[in-house]
Structures are given as structure tokens and as C-alpha cells.
Design a protein around this nucleic acid. Structure first.
Length: 285
DNA sequence: GCCCCAGCTCGTCAATATTC
DNA sequence: GAATATTGACGAGCTGGGGC
């Protein structure tokens, strides 16, 4: 494969690769600080839930329904009865829900890519169509932030009139998020707000604001105006591309954090299942 | 040191989405 | 409906690692 061809291949499959990377993280290696803090949190919970040799178990009628954690009444050998709350929680809005659609799209794209060699331009148009019809990363993250407490919101760039100093946008940066025992996501610390340079609105050197179109007379002036407009457009798009890439990175980070959280939660559920199995299994003697 | 490769970033174009 | 924002795709350039 040629270099360009390889690049194309890599880029076409970037999203798929990202998802694969995320999936591969689920094989037990949690490197994220989020996961670590979550793990610590879970260990504390496990300590509370750790059940010594139990004599009797009865499942309470309340709370077993969909959406609320099951409460198990456990009678300890000492005769004391305790309520053990399961970690099965209300179905939560997934950070990944938006990208699930995208995953399907990627699959479609992969298929399209295979046939693209034989079908050519039409398929590439189709592929492009599929690719471009997706919500923006800003929108996805903002939806998440409204669904899931603790997911940072990408703030709109505030204009000068709104009080923000020029060229400086206040932006919430993703911090460690984890799921609490109540199923909510919280930041592990105070949410820092970073002062990030917003795309500069200053015109590049040599680009001068032209007079109104009505005052342009000569072809030279028109050409200059066209050049100026083009440079302005390029500059804006340059900044927009940077911003878009930054958002994309943030989005991926968010997904990775979510994966780490879910991984820990899954582990916890498995542990609880095993514990309950041990408790409920009929005694042979 | 030179070359090749893989991976990354950046600028640009073009298509689409969103806003006004 | 025009103007603007967003984002995938593409190509160019840079960098670090490995083989020679």
C-alpha cells in the first residue's frame, strides 16, 4: 500500500479504530485516573457490601422493578437483618449512544469502501453523505452533559459583548468523572475551568478591511476584495478546523472515561452476581 | 548519516448543518 | 435563502524509530 493509500486507509477507519481502542481497554487494563478513582470508590462500596457467611436471604418486594436498585434482605448469622442494595441501577443515558449510530455508519462505510474501487465516484459521494450527516461533537457532548451530570459541557464561544475578554473563551475541560453509587456521574474534584485562547478574530497581516462593495470601482479593487475575502475565509476555517479537532479529542476522551467507568461497574456487577449465587445456591448437606 | 516507514499535525476543500 | 459553522477527506510536512 502506498503511503497516501495507507493514510487514506487509516483515516477512513479512524473512528472504527478509536472504538476498537476503547474496546481493547476493557480487557482489564485500566490506566485512566478516572478508573482508578472509580476503582477506589468501588472498593469502599465492596467493603460495605462484603457479606460474611450468610444464613438466609430474602428479596424484598420493593425496588426490584425496572429502574430502581433491588434491595435484598440479608439475615446475618447473628440474627441481624440488613438491607443490601444491589448495584443494578437505573438505565442511564450512555455516553456512547450517539456513537452507536456512528458505529453502524462506520460499518456501512467499510462496506462502501470495499465496493468503492469498483463503483467509483458515486459511492464516494454516498460515503461522504453518510459521514457528514452526524451531529457535531459540541452537540453530542452538550447533550451528554444535560443527560449525565458531571460530563463537561463545551461552552459556546462567547462574544465580546457577553463580557468575556476578547479571544479568551472560558471552557470546561473534561475532568475525572465517575459513577457514584446512586448512578450519577460526578467530577472527582472541582471542575477546573481553563482559559483557552479562542480563535483569533484578528485579521492576518496585510489583510485590510475593504470598503463597502459599493465603493469598489476598478477590477483591481474587486480582485483585492476577493482575495481579502478568501484569506478571511481561509483563516476562519483554519481556526474552525483546530477547534473541531480539539472537540473531537475531547469527545474521544469522554468516551474513554465512560468506558473505564462502565468497565468497573461491570466488574462490580459480576462480583455481586457471584456473591448472590453463592448465597442462593442450595446447600448440599 | 541516510533511507524508509508509521504516526501525527496542520491547512485546505467541499459538503452539510445550523443560524439568522 | 444567504451567511456562517461544522466536520470528513485529502495532501503536505514533520518527527521518531529501526534497518543499513
Amino acid at each position: 500500500m502506498s503511503k497516501c493509500g495507507r493514510k487514506k486507509y487509516i483515516k477512513t477507519n479512524l473512528r472504527q479504530m478509536t472504538m476498537e481502542t476503547i474496546e481493547s481497554q476493557q480487557d482489564g487494563s485500566i490506566t485512566d485516573s478516572v478508573a482508578e478513582s472509580e476503582s477506589a470508590h468501588m472498593q469502599t462500596q465492596t467493603g460495605q457490601n462484603s457479606i460474611p457467611t450468610l444464613a438466609q436471604v430474602s428479596v424484598a418486594g420493593s425496588g426490584t422493578g425496572r429502574g430502581s436498585p433491588a434491595v435484598t434482605l440479608v439475615q446475618l448469622p447473628s440474627g441481624q437483618t440488613v438491607h443490601v442494595q444491589g448495584v443494578i441501577q437505573t438505565p442511564q443515558p450512555s455516553v456512547i449512544h450517539s456513537s452507536q449510530i456512528q458505529t453502524v455508519q462506520v460499518a456501512t462505510i467499510a462496506e462502501t469502501d470495499e465496493s468503492a474501487e469498483s463503483e467509483g465516484v458515486i459511492d464516494s459521494h454516498k460515503r461522504r453523505e453518510i459521514l457528514s450527516r452526524r451531529p457535531s461533537y459540541r452537540k453530542i457532548l452538550n447533550e451528554l452533559s444535560s443527560d449525565v451530570h458531571g460530563v463537561p459541557k463545551i461552552e459556546e464561544e462567547k462574544s465580546e459583548e457577553e463580557g468575556t475578554p476578547p479571544n479568551i473563551a472560558t471552557m470546561a475541560v473534561p475532568t475525572s468523572i465517575y459513577q457514584t453509587s446512586t448512578g450519577q456521574y460526578t467530577a472527582t474534584g472541582d471542575m477546573p475551568t481553563y482559559q483557552i485562547r479562542a480563535p483569533t478574530t484578528a485579521l492576518p497581516q496585510g489583510v485590510v478591511m475593504a470598503a463597502s462593495p459599493g465603493s469598489l470601482h476598478s477590477p483591481q479593487q474587486l480582485a483585492e476584495e476577493a482575495t481579502r475575502k478568501r484569506e478571511l475565509r481561509l483563516m476562519k476555517n483554519r481556526e474552525a478546523a483546530k477547534e473541531c479537532r480539539r472537540r473531537k479529542k475531547e469527545y474521544v476522551k469522554c468516551l474513554e472515561s465512560r468506558v473505564a467507568v462502565l468497565e468497573v461497574q461491570n466488574k462490580k456487577l459480576i462480583e455481586e452476581l457471584e456473591t448472590l449465587k453463592d448465597i442462593c445456591s442450595p446447600k448440599t448437606d
